[in-house]
Measured scan of single mutants.
Amino acid sequence: MFKRLMMVALLVIAPLSAATAADQTNPYKLMDEAAQKTFDRLKNEQPQIRANPDYLRTIVDQELLPYVQVKYAGALVLGQYYKSATPAQREAYFAAFREYLKQAYGQALAMYHGQTYQIAPEQPLGDKTIVPIRVTIIDPNGRPPVRLDFQWRKNSQTGNWQAYDMIAEGVSMITTKQNEWGTLLRTKGIDGLTAQLKSISQQKITLEEKK
């Protein structure tokens, strides 16, 4: 169930391209415009997507990853294993993690069937560096609404905000991946996880038929 919630949630996290980005210092504006741009692209490019579902990787690479804190999220997933990894191991892992996100997020976007969304009203940021933004996803086919909290983090150097995690039903996506990959990290280390991520990233994206 959580895996499905995570995939549905990713439908609204794909941010804007650099040329049309919203105010990078306001995570609420980023979330709002990102959702609108993403849904528009999914709707307008269905012919290309249906002809070649792996085209979704391109959308992810162009529109999402430049505005997601990939390395920060990847380091959180590694936890204690990050500090013990060599620079070469980290570089290989982050490259594999990025390719994994292209496949995983692309597969999530393949679930698009006309969903709509509501974003919580903007709250004062103050001096906060981590801000959760509640998004409610509404399914046109009558499924119950899904309420999610996207975690946005302020870059201490640039002042810009980027998304790095999502919490559904009190469970963090980062925590879920830590639990899912924990045994592999304990037995085969970061190299074993890197190899698995490379394998997963090679899987073809498949479209979910409308139910």
Rank of each mutant, 00 (worst) to 15 (best):
A9G: 05
A92L: 13
Q107I: 15
D61Y: 10
L30S: 07
G74H: 01
Q157A: 03
Q203W: 09
Y67A: 05
G189Y: 01
Q46M: 08
L185T: 14
T158S: 09
T20N: 11
E180M: 02
I49M: 08
I130D: 00
V12T: 06
A51C: 12
V131C: 06
T206W: 11
G106Y: 03
P87C: 04
L125M: 10
D165N: 03
M166P: 01
I190M: 05
T116N: 14
G79P: 00
Q123P: 11
K37D: 06
N179C: 01
A73H: 02
Q157P: 11
L30D: 05
T176R: 03
L184E: 07
E33W: 03
Y81G: 10
K204V: 08
P47H: 10
V8N: 01
T129M: 08
L56G: 07
A21Y: 12
A14R: 02
Q178C: 02
K154H: 06
Y105P: 01
L42N: 06
Q162N: 06
V146E: 13
L65H: 12
G170V: 02
R143I: 04
W152K: 03
T86R: 07
P144H: 09
P15R: 05
L5E: 01
V135H: 07
D23K: 10
L56Q: 14
I119L: 07
Q203V: 12
R41K: 05
A75P: 01
M111T: 05
F97P: 00
P140H: 14
G126R: 10
G126F: 11
A21M: 10
Q115C: 08
Q89K: 07
L185K: 07
A96D: 12
D191V: 06
F97S: 07
A88Y: 10
R134M: 03
A35W: 09
K83I: 06
Q80Y: 14
V146C: 01
R41V: 05
A21E: 12
L101P: 03
D54R: 06
A110G: 13
L184W: 07
A104V: 07
Y105M: 02
V8M: 15
L197C: 05
Q157Y: 12
K204T: 13
V12E: 01
K210R: 10
A19Q: 04
T183M: 08
T116C: 15
Y105S: 01
I200D: 12
P15L: 05
L30M: 12
A19W: 03
T25K: 08
D32A: 12
E63Y: 02
P87V: 09
E45M: 09
L109G: 13
W152P: 02
R90I: 04
Y164Q: 00
A73Q: 07
F97D: 05
L197P: 13
L148G: 01
N26F: 08
P53I: 10
A22K: 09
D149L: 03
R134E: 02
E63V: 03
N44C: 10
A73K: 03
R41Q: 06
K211D: 08
T194Y: 07
T187K: 14
L185G: 06
L30Q: 15
N44A: 11
L197N: 15
M166S: 01
A92V: 13
Y93W: 04
V171C: 00
S172M: 02
A85T: 10
E169I: 03
L148K: 13
M173K: 11
S156A: 00
A168W: 06
I137T: 04
D54T: 14
R143D: 01
A110C: 12
Q178R: 09
V135Y: 11
W161T: 03
N44Y: 08
R186D: 00
T25Q: 06
D54E: 10
I190L: 07
L185A: 00
G74L: 00
Y112E: 05
Q62C: 08
V135I: 02
V70L: 06
Q80K: 09
A34V: 08
Q46H: 08
R186F: 00
T86N: 10
T175M: 06
A92Q: 13
L193Y: 12
Y164T: 03
Q103C: 12
A21R: 10
I205F: 12
I133A: 00
P47M: 10
Q69W: 01
Y112N: 06
V8Y: 15
A9C: 11
K210E: 07
E91I: 14
E45W: 03
D40T: 13
R147W: 03
I119W: 13
V77W: 05
A18P: 14
P132V: 01
K154T: 11
A51D: 10
I174W: 09
Y28A: 06
R41T: 08
Q46Y: 08
V77A: 08
Q118M: 14
N52R: 12
V68M: 15
S156H: 03
N52W: 06
D191G: 07
E169V: 00
Q162S: 13
S201G: 14
T129W: 11
N44F: 07
G79H: 05
G142Q: 11
G170H: 00
N26E: 06
A163E: 02
T116V: 09
K83S: 10
A96M: 14
A34C: 09
V135N: 04
I205R: 09
P15H: 12
A75Q: 02
I59T: 08
Q118T: 15
S201T: 11
Q118Y: 13
V77G: 15
G114N: 07
K128D: 03
T38M: 14
A75Y: 00
I167C: 02
N44Q: 10
F39G: 02
Q162T: 05
G126E: 12
A22Y: 14
A195E: 14
M1Q: 00
P121F: 11
A168Q: 07
S199E: 08
L148C: 00
P87E: 08
T116A: 00
R4M: 15
S17K: 15
I130R: 02
R4H: 14
A195C: 12
V12P: 01
E122L: 10
M31F: 05
K29C: 12
K188M: 08
M166F: 02
M173P: 01
K3R: 03
S172F: 05
F94V: 09
Q151T: 07
A108M: 06
Y164M: 04
E45S: 13
P145V: 07
L10G: 01
Q36W: 06
Q123L: 11
A92R: 13
L64H: 01
K211A: 12
L65Q: 12
T187D: 02
T116D: 15
K210W: 13
E180L: 02
K204I: 11
V60N: 04
T183H: 05
G79E: 01
R90C: 06
L148Q: 02
D165C: 09
A85C: 13
T183S: 11
P132H: 11
D32K: 06
Y67M: 03
M1K: 03
L30G: 14
G79W: 00
A95R: 08
L207R: 14
Q103W: 05
Y164H: 07
Y72D: 01
L30P: 07
L125H: 10
A88N: 13
Y93H: 06
R147S: 11
L42E: 05
V68Y: 03
A35K: 01
L197K: 15
G74R: 01
P140W: 13
